[in-house]
Nucleic acid binder design. Structure first.
Lengths: 153, 153
DNA sequence: GGCTTGCCTGGAGTGCGCTCCAAGCCGTTA
DNA sequence: TAACGGCTTGGAGCGCACTCCAGGCAAGCC
């Protein structure tokens, strides 16, 4: 079972690992920056920049100096990508990563950071749902289904 | 009923009108920029800037030249604020407003714009829910409820 | 050998959405 | 009369998150 999991981890494509980052990640460096860019939707520029500012640990290099990302890198990147996509500022992501680097004793701080972000996410969901209702209504009006209650614009 | 509605519209506070912009809006200019700022959460700077770039029609002025927003202004502002809050770029909002100024013949274009934004909103909601699941899981781990399946960071 | 493709670097540049500045006017309160 | 708070303007400035540039290296293929 463990052997199988390891085998699968080693053979999963960059795209697959990024999309579904579960289990113990492999640490062998094998994905090029182009592959990671395609899988993550981040540009190669952005990936290098994330590394430069410390969001990612220094990535392993091939013999000729090119980056080779491991599955573990992809796992972290997938999580950071989710935080970013849901509106966490890069500065906060950086704080989270730096806390993580300090080890076990900062876990309460990290949890609090995630708790705060969870609240922000819930708020965003509420805002989006409220807006969805407004949009549905207006679109109905534009479709001519509701001539009463017409919007002023 | 209409008389009552009109009466109520004239006596509702800036805050109330902004929060619940329903019915035929009154067009008498009566809210100061400070009131609108407090009600909308937008700074006075931003309100003036929105007007300057054409998101809002030129606002009525008091005898001494100060802005006085009508309920109709608040209605538009509330809608624009929702679009903005849910990630529509200012340029797209501007396009919507400019189409609206051209009158009835652009209503199909406006509807399409809102349809596109509705899809974007739905996508955001999906992203947020997916992230919420990840956050819930990680927070559980940090709370020590799940020692198995621990994250790498 | 020559061409193409992909990647490397530090540092400068860009686009967006505000945000602020300086100088001044108006109306109210003391 | 003087101070104060709120408002006015055009234009400059700012913070964020990338995004790109110039110049160069390395590997693969015809």
């Amino acid at each position: 079972m463990t052997a199988l999991a390891t085998f699968e981890a080693e053979t999963r494509s960059c795209w697959d690992v990024f999309r579904d980052p579960v289990g113990e990640p492999d640490r062998t460096p094998r994905h090029t920056i182009g592959e990671v860019s395609a899988a993550s939707g981040l540009t190669a520029h952005t990936l290098r920049w994330y590394e430069r500012i410390g969001l990612l640990d220094p990535v392993d290099r091939s013999a000729s100096g090119q980056r080779r990302y491991s599955d573990a890198d992809l796992h972290r990147l997938a999580f950071l990508g989710r935080l970013r996509l849901t509106g966490m500022p890069v500065a906060d992501m950086l704080r989270y990563v730096e806390l993580a680097r300090e080890g076990e004793r900062t876990s309460a701080d990290r949890r609090d950071l995630l708790l705060a972000h969870r609240e922000a996410v819930r708020q965003q969901i509420a805002d989006l749902h409220a807006t969805l209702a407004v949009l549905d209504h207006k679109i109905d009006v534009y479709n001519g289904r509701l001539t009463r209650c017409a919007p002023s614009h």
